[in-house]
Design a protein around this nucleic acid. Structure first.
Length: 874
RNA sequence: GCCGGGGUGGCGGAAUGGUAGACGCAGCGGACUUAAAAUCCGCUGGGGGGUAGCCCCCGUACGGGUUCGAGUCCCGUCCCCGGCACCA
């Protein structure tokens, strides 16, 4: 008998599938769009990268054999900083570096047996693609969704470019977690995503997405209902408008606070206070987000020397500026209600401002003076005509009162900001705009697209310098104005690469279209993506932007759906045991040569054994020394990645696939281990041997299977086959790959058990062949090889086994017998046996008898096929 | 602090309100082998009892509750992971 040798069979079937084009997608029949977030091509791939694509491949194959037309495409998010950085480091052009990486990645994907419709490959750095970035940008411009504005923006000193709000994480650059983001005053391009805030929020409801991701998007959009209230100024015509969610506390507003950046802050400062106010504004502008946070929550601020009037009480109240008020939210100004907002309370306490109670706690009156702000609902007091009103009702009543007098109005505010898309970098899509000294900003006419990214040959040309590298290239920016024909200058910034990835899934539906980004009819056929698979790190980046783009294109009539991704699955990461270096162990303490921050808030170089255990780490001997090992996310920098090429060449693609899929539920983290690989190998080898040992006998079975007339072991095997089929099918539908494989292992055990006692029969033959069909999505090479021993066609053509519902109906079932809810035995009875039969059978069980001894049965609960519970007394 | 998700053997993890621990890893015992590997068979939550077939008790973070019956539902508490965080 031949041995299972993955190396001998895998390349053969990979070539076969490719030649046959089983994954070529056609617009006919029932469709399934299976999509995995396309990668940034960064080099050789390790198993951490491959988990996603393996999951997508399993699902795509499953859908294909189920009979769907499946769109399972792949492409490359090819613009971006790493290519430039590599160019700077190695002196190679970003394009060459990118394409070499794409070549390597493709090779890894093919080695794993992951099949795509490569005719639809999309690479975002190609002019054929990015010309439509420019096209979409111009359409947005036409619709008023693109604008240029000057303001304080986030600047990453490492990237040497501005960032969108979504790309700032805890005050730091998302790509450089060690680098605080600075603020700069710049004029930049924005997309008006805020115009879609309400729809982006509302349409989350219907999506089959993880609750976690929906919650993150909701929080990011940050809708809140309240009111804008206008406070007249003392001695001036203008008013200060504030936003509040608590109009019911208006009578308790004893001061106003403007954000330092608010235009009125400097304008309102009195001559005596001016210097101090200016200094405060200047200081807060210089502070990074990180520095602000480092100061703790200690409130700072200065009095402007100006006063406003509380529109409800007519009271004269002071106006301050403080950096706890954010310019970007609401109106950038608040009314200070220290009695009922803890932040205002702290501010008022620090600066001696009056604190007034205007909401009373029902049943348990608040102490006076207040010890802290009372923020819960209550009854309005000291509020003139509103006294006695419950505060929740008071909100609407106060707003109505204000509206009647023209002092304010109801208002819904969002935290979402417009998307800053300019980037001062080379390797991206040029922004198709021209600056004309006479006509101002003029869009490049559609027929002149694409605005080509010039091919900069010198590394120094690419290096970011705090402004766009293209700024140094007159051959690029010198142009004529499309409107007046006079000399003009092209915009030299490039687009955020998230623009590229915001519509790539639409390009797959029609990747070669030269006139439009895609044919609306083709998009209509394929959209929406039925199952999207990717990392949770894009919860408020790519996934939000893509939803925005889809809605925009929907409004243009180009897409028929308002939401791009019906189903979303966020997979867990792949970890590997990682050597964190030698350590010294003394008693209960472990000493590291350098301070570490693995799992610690503060870096330390001393750990206790208990801490090590708690963080899931281990001490292992290596070359005569003790090393600290701990599972860590596979990454190039840690050098702990199991590389695809070498692994597949030594062990095999199917083994890698099973290892990844079986180790843990796909949404969880998984640790790649040698034991896991061993287990996968054992499983597949067992499949091989089961089939190989019976190969000749199976070929000799010619009589057809009569499912209705099976007896004994054959009948049991057939029933188990269909139970397994149901389980595997359901699990695949829900992407529960680990339990699907567990069911396949269980059935394999049943096949071994069967053959210990029984010959090869038609029922057994059917079980083996259907088994291979079920195994196909998971371990396609092995399944295809074994299948071909018995059949001339491919498993792609064999289809998914049809479920025989009748086989699931057991005639004899095992029923648990409980006495007072505790298991005391089991009985075998016909499926539909009445209570009398079940009771009679149960009473024959000795252990049940023992527990009924001398007791009276007062109640019998019988769930046919499940349980008989005898409730006794005495 | 707020929001989301969790807490089940030595480990990864299974369980539509109905026999907790499927499947696998690790471990233990046996067969085969000169030996090892591989493979095959068996055992494997904790405690106790019995010559044995087996039986009993405890057990899904903790405390209550609903129910004939709770890992699953409800209330409260603790802990862990992830996200957000001066958003008025």
């Amino acid at each position: 008998m031949e041995r299972y040798d993955p190396h001998a069979i895998e390349p053969k079937w990979q070539r076969f599938w490719k030649e046959k084009g089983f994954m070529r997608a056609k617009e006919e029949g029932q469709k399934q769009y299976v999509l995995v977030m396309f990668p940034y091509p960064s080099g050789d791939l390790h198993m951490g990268h491959l988990k996603n694509y393996t999951m997508g491949d399993v699902l795509a194959r499953f859908r294909r054999v189920q009979g769907y037309e499946v769109l399972h495409p792949m492409g490359w998010d090819a613009f971006g900083l790493p290519a430039e950085n590599a160019a700077l480091k190695f002196g190679v052009h970003p394009r060459d570096w990118t394409y070499e990486n794409i070549r390597q990645a493709k090779e890894s994907l093919e080695l794993m047996g992951i099949l795509y419709d490569w005719d639809r490959e999309v690479t975002t750095c190609e002019p054929d693609y990015y010309r439509f970035n420019q096209w979409i940008f111009l359409k947005m411009w036409e619709k008023g969704l693109v604008y240029r504005a000057k303001g304080l923006v986030n600047w990453c000193p490492k990237c040497q470019t501005v960032l969108a709000n979504e790309q700032v994480v805890e005050g730091r650059c998302w790509r450089h977690p060690d680098t605080p983001v600075e603020k700069r005053e710049l004029e930049q391009w924005y997309l008006r995503i805020t115009a879609y805030a309400e729809r982006l929020l509302r349409d989350l409801e219907g999506l089959r997405w993880p609750e976690k991701v929906k919650a993150m998007q909701r929080a990011w959009i940050g809708r809140s209902e309240g009111a804008e209230i206008h406070f007249p100024l003392e001695g001036r015509e203008e008013k200060v408008t504030v936003f509040t969610t608590r109009p019911d506390t208006l009578f308790g507003a004893t001061f106003l606070v403007l954000a330092p950046e608010h235009p009125l802050t400097l304008a309102l400062a009195s001559p005596e206070r001016r210097a101090e106010v200016e200094a405060y504004v200047e200081a807060s502008r210089r502070k990074t987000e990180i520095e602000r946070q480092a100061e703790g929550r200690e409130k700072t601020g200065v009095f402007l020397g100006a006063y406003a009037l509380n529109p409800a009480t007519g009271e004269r109240i002071p106006i301050w500026t403080a950096d706890y008020v954010l310019y970007g939210y609401g109106t950038g100004a608040i009314m200070g209600v220290p009695g009922h907002d803890q932040r205002d309370f702290e501010f008022a306490s620090r600066f001696g401002l009056p604190i007034r109670k205007v909401i009373e706690r029902p049943g348990d009156p608040l102490p006076e003076p207040l010890e802290r702000a009372y923020e819960e609902p209550g009854i309005m007091v000291h509020s003139g005509p509103f006294d006695g009103t419950p505060s929740e009702e008071g909100k609407a009543k106060v707003v109505a009162w204000l509206e009647e007098r023209g002092l304010g109005q109801r208002k819904v505010t969002y935290r979402l900001r417009d998307w800053l898309i300019s980037r001062q970098r080379y390797w991206g899509t040029p922004i198709p705009m021209v600056h004309c000294p006479r006509c101002g900003v003029v869009p490049v006419p559609e027929e002149e697209l694409p605005v080509l990214l010039p091919d900069l040959k010198e590394v120094e040309d690419i290096r970011p310098k705090g402004k766009s590298p293209l700024e140094a290239h007159p051959e690029f920016y010198e142009t004529t104005c499309p409107k007046c024909g006079g000399p003009a200058k092209r915009d030299t910034d490039t687009m955020d690469t998230f623009f590229d990835s915001s519509w790539y899934y639409l390009r797959y539906t029609d990747p070669h279209n030269e006139i439009l980004p895609f044919d609306p009819e083709k998009a209509r056929f394929w959209m929406p993506v039925d199952q999207y698979i990717g990392g949770v790190e894009h919860a408020v980046l790519h996934l939000l932007y893509s939803r925005f783009f889809t809605k925009f294109l929907y409004d243009l009539g180009l897409v028929s759906v308002e939401e791009p991704f019906q189903g979303l699955f966020t997979q867990g990461m792949v970890l590997a045991w990682t050597d964190f270096g030698p350590v010294e162990v003394k008693g209960e303490k472990v000493y590291l040569p350098e301070p570490t921050r693995i799992m610690l808030e503060v870096p330390r170089n001393e750990l206790t054994l208990e801490e090590i255990q708690k963080m899931g780490a281990e001490l292992r001997e290596k070359e005569g020394r003790t090393h600290l090992f701990k599972p860590a996310v596979m990454s190039k920098s840690k050098g702990n990645g199991v590389m695809v090429g070498p692994f597949v060449r030594e062990q095999g693609a199917d083994i890698a696939r099973i290892t990844i899929l079986f180790a843990a539920p796909p949404e969880n983290e998984m640790v790649w281990t040698e034991e896991g690989v061993q287990g996968a190998w054992r499983f597949l080898n067992r499949v091989w041997r089961r089939v190989a040992e019976d190969r000749e006998a199976l070929l000799q079975v010619t009589e057809p299977l009569e499912a209705g007339n099976l007896k004994g072991a054959d009948r049991a095997l057939y029933a188990k086959l269909h139970e397994t089929l149901k389980k595997v099918t359901d699990d695949l539908e829900a992407l529960r790959f680990n339990t699907a494989i567990a069911a396949l292992m269980e059935f394999l055990n049943a096949l071994y058990e069967y053959r210990r006692e029984n010959p090869v029969t038609p029922a057994y033959r059917r079980a083996i062949l259907d088994y291979l069909r079920m195994l196909f999505p998971f371990a396609p090479h092995l399944a295809e090889e074994l299948w071909h021993w018995f059949a001339p066609n491919s498993l792609f053509e064999a289809g998914w086994p049809e479920l025989d519902e009748k086989a699931l109906e057991k005639e004899v079932v095992e029923v648990a017998v409980q006495v007072n809810g505790r298991l005391r035995g089991t009985i075998q009875i016909p499926k539909d046996a009445p209570l009398e039969v079940a009771r009679a059978e149960a009473l024959k069980v000795r252990n049940v008898q023992a527990h009924l001894e001398g007791k009276e049965v007062v109640k019998e609960i019988y769930v046919p096929g499940k349980v008989l519970n005898l409730v006794v007394r005495g």
